[in-house]
Design a binder for these strands. Sequence first.
DNA 1: CTCAAAATATGGACTCTTTCAATAAAAATG
DNA 2: CATTTTTATTGAAAGAGTCCATATTTTGAG
Lengths: 146, 146
Amino acid sequence: MTSDPAELLRQNALSVTAQRLAVLRAVSARPHGTADTIAEDVRAEIGVVSKQAVYNALGTLVEKGLIRRIQPAGSPALYEDRVGDNHHHVICRSCGKTGDIDCAVGESPCLTAAVGIGAGAGFQIDEAEVIYWGTCPACLAAKPGN
Amino acid sequence: MTSDPAELLRQNALSVTAQRLAVLRAVSARPHGTADTIAEDVRAEIGVVSKQAVYNALGTLVEKGLIRRIQPAGSPALYEDRVGDNHHHVICRSCGKTGDIDCAVGESPCLTAAVGIGAGAGFQIDEAEVIYWGTCPACLAAKPGN
DNA sequence: CTCAAAATATGGACTCTTTCAATAAAAATG
DNA sequence: CATTTTTATTGAAAGAGTCCATATTTTGAG
């Protein structure tokens, strides 16, 4: 097992830098954070970091599969720690709160259902991205006419 | 039935303007177009149109449910004609080609599967957005090592 | 058909997120 | 340690959308 972040980076042929380690920590500490909030967290930990370094680190880590990027409509990209377990997301339309939803249909849910149907015929599908849109409990309670 | 676009607008309490009619036509004529390509089509039809008018029209039409907006990660928003039939989309990672995929699981597919599970508990979900990512036939053929 | 009120469109500035590029600074390598 | 390679920094800039004040159209009522 590789629970050591530095070791994790080395295993992926990446230099071990303070920035990357801090980004990695920030992402686990605050799932569903944006590049911006992550940058803040990183700065709180190691001082000055360029915005670009954060974007680079996030991009590289996503490429290597160490973290996952979610890009919901109308909001900046979010990053999270949980990878490889095919889960989906639910996002609140009014406050933007994001939650995880485990896939109810085994490994690759809707994925299998769609291959080679209709206009999508012939596509080689490698990922099914599912986002549930709705209203979170807090916003439901705050809504008028409730 | 209301096959007349102008009538459609009136039924939704919208003023009938040349811009809106042209936008409506452009969206049906070219499904999965971006605000930009739609603006081009509209200009080809009625001459000068401000970018803002196109965004306004698109926004309003989406609100009224006359067209649908899709916002794939890493690309501008796309608009399409087909509404109310709960279909999904497949997007090619290399060329961006977008296709429709009918839902294989009846009315609201993955939607029902998820309510009240895990961290998403308590959310009132109103839409399940599914995007399949992969490679289209053409790009598959063009790929090296094929 | 005509005019005032309401709804839209125009143009241009501006925001936000992300990327590019050149230079400087750290890591990895032997 | 010295060198080579990989990263980080900084500042500019692109892309997509939005905001605002003003000018035009539509609508609806005489």
